[in-house]
């Protein structure tokens, strides 16, 4: 986990310029659907998660939010919500679709259980294809959600599923930790006051694994992420497996102050140069002795802190 996290940080630093631009799209459309619980306990849980997501994403600037739960979460309403986004969204916008509840997979089709007729992954994907927003994040947190991966994946899409395959049928808890990731500053591992899809995924995946481990229960869900539009989802996105780059650039929620960007080009250049040197030094860590590495790291980090202090004045 530590290795993966460090690699992820490197990846993020390398794409910093891209990220600065892409972390601030014009509008982010959030569509959240909590499906049919089947039992009171599940229904309440699913609805609460959806409500909490609704509250969290509404706090983001430039967010357009549609949240469906309980009896309102019908196939027709889901389709209408996505059509509405199609009508409003521009190419520079982003879409975040979050699915909560029970899913099924018969070997061919994934279905999200909704009051009334269910909706298949194929039907949802067709609706998503019509949305002009060039960057889309689909987080399917239901049981059997791994069965929806093939239907959802595509260019410009980050897909997260709570289960690795469509055969992991037990009710999942990934959604609980995904919601937690959106509100817990601890999920913001690079402390840029923005929680990216990769950060939220890593947080939720780690917490879900820990849950099963500490409860001494056999893990019945294994979340995966796929953001290249091809191949299988992976549990640990990294440069080695080529997954996670787009997810790292996809802002799911921004915290207060995230948009405060200075316009002093000299200082910004200096900061970027220092960040690049820090990144390079981290790559060279293995070839340096610990003392030398720490000495250089301290010097660079101190310089960066001073530049940031100037920028913040």
């Amino acid at each position: 986990m530590a290795v993966a996290a460090a690699v992820g940080a490197d990846m993020k630093a390398l794409t910093l310029l891209l990220a600065v631009a892409s972390l601030a799209p014009a509008t982010t459309f959030y569509v959240t659907v909590a499906g049919l619980g089947g039992e009171d306990e599940f229904q309440q849980r699913f609805d609460n998660w959806a409500k909490e997501i609704d509250k969290l994403v509404r706090a983001s600037k430039d967010a357009q939010v549609e949240t469906l739960f309980g009896p309102a979460a019908t196939k027709a309403r889901v389709e209408a919500a996505l059509r509405s986004v199609s009508a409003k969204a521009q190419r520079d916008d982003a879409l975040v679709l979050m699915l909560i509840g029970h899913g099924t997979f018969d070997g061919y089709d994934y279905r999200l259980n909704l009051p009334g007729p269910d909706i298949t992954a194929g039907e949802l994907s067709a609706l998503l294809d019509r949305i002009p927003a060039s960057r889309q994040l689909i987080v399917n947190m239901t049981s059997c959600s791994g069965g929806s991966m093939k239907a959802f994946q595509g260019a410009g899409r980050v897909v997260v599923t709570a289960t690795k395959t469509g055969t992991e049928r037990n009710a999942t808890i990934f959604a609980r930790y995904w919601v937690e990731a959106l509100r817990d500053p601890a999920a913001d591992s690079d402390k840029n006051e923005t929680i990216s899809a990769l950060e939220a995924y890593r947080y939720a995946e780690q917490k879900t694994s820990q849950f099963y481990e500490t409860q001494k229960r056999l893990a019945t869900e294994h979340a995966v992420l796929e953001d290249t539009g091809k191949g299988d989802g992976v549990r640990q996105p990294s440069p080695q497996n080529g997954q996670g780059l787009a997810a790292a650039q996809f802002a799911v929620v921004r915290m207060a102050g995230a948009q405060n960007i200075s316009n002093d080009p000299a200082l910004l250049n200096k900061r970027e140069e220092l960040e690049a040197r820090i990144d390079k030094l981290k790559y060279e860590k293995a070839s340096l002795n610990e003392g030398e590495y720490r000495k250089q790291l301290r010097a660079l980090l101190t310089a960066l802190a001073k530049v940031q202090a100037e920028l913040d004045k």
Binding site: A5, A6, A9, A13, S189, D190, K191, N192, L274, E275, I278, K282, L297, L301, L304, A305, Q308, A309, D312
Partner: peptide, 12 residues
Amino acid sequence: LEAAPGYKPAQR
């Protein structure tokens, strides 16, 4: 800061 070089409170 090694994990998050831009972490402002830590920089301070």
